[in-house]
Design a protein around this nucleic acid. Structure first.
Lengths: 144, 144
DNA sequence: TTGCGTGCAAAGGTTTTGCATGGCA
DNA sequence: TGCCATGCAAAACCTTTGCACGCAA
């Protein structure tokens, strides 16, 4: 599969963007907009192609939060292991994406593996539901 | 939100389709193709609009398995409770979608609720990973 | 020099929407 | 009759792809 054979200006730009946003997620268009704002041109097609390579290489993770909106990318640098207990919770009400570090939750993975032979990929899995804030608001009938 | 105000021919068609496919999932285009094959015309726009109403009403569940492919719909009839322990596992290798009934797994929901205040919606959540068959094949180096 | 990377524009596929018409109650 | 539902076509959206050119090694 595609490798990072050459070092290019665009690749450096993308890396610099991802370093500063480490720990949060971004879309391909976020990258384009960021550089466009600084009068630096970089093609969307190139961003997609570069991201695809990083995803294949394992240093960027890709997941989808909203049905047909843009794909989310998240840079983990070289410390892939740090993301082992990293889960994504998506609130169906307010749309908030919660990054959750929870060792207990990773037991799901063990259960799925041992009982069902399924190797969970927590980096791509997004848990949908209602976050604490929205649940509170619904009870109090103050939101929505 | 949109309600099933009127009873129409197209709505009956959709219901008849969903009754026979209960327990599995389908896309909007599956419905169109099925009826088109029988020389019964029904517009895709209508299917989408009808499905949206059923989803809002709670008797149809909607989720996404493949990134930018079509949305999946699943009819639960009037027995919504039956789907409480119903989870979806999606294999990243072979693309297979596994419908899993597991009481233990629903403890994730409890944990998320009690420890993190998050109300999981298992009907929309899809667990990504590698299924038993594909894991086996990878070990034996016979697949891919 | 070799061949990968880039940029542009066009195509791809699914879903939504505007508008006129049709049909339920 | 009044309003909702339908059908068609066009639009919207994100992403991929073909092709010619540029650039890294």
């Amino acid at each position: 599969m595609a490798k990072l054979a050459y070092k290019t200006r665009q690749q450096e730009l993308l890396l610099s963007y991802m370093s500063r946003t480490q720990g949060s997620h971004f879309t391909a268009d976020d990258v384009r907009a960021y550089f466009n704002h600084k009068n630096i041109q970089i093609s969307l097609a190139t961003i997609y192609r570069q991201l695809e390579k990083f995803v294949a290489g394992g240093s960027v993770h890709k997941y989808f939060i909203d049905e047909h909106s843009a794909a989310c990318y998240e840079y983990s640098g070289e410390t892939c292991t740090k993301l082992e207990n990293h889960f994504h919770l998506k609130c169906e009400k307010c749309g908030k994406l919660i990054h959750l570090e929870c060792g207990e939750l990773s037991e799901i993975g063990s259960h799925l593996k041992n009982e069902h032979g399924f190797s969970l990929n927590p980096l791509r899995t997004v848990f949908y539901g209602v976050c604490a804030d929205c649940a509170k608001c619904t009870e109090e009938k103050t939101c929505e």
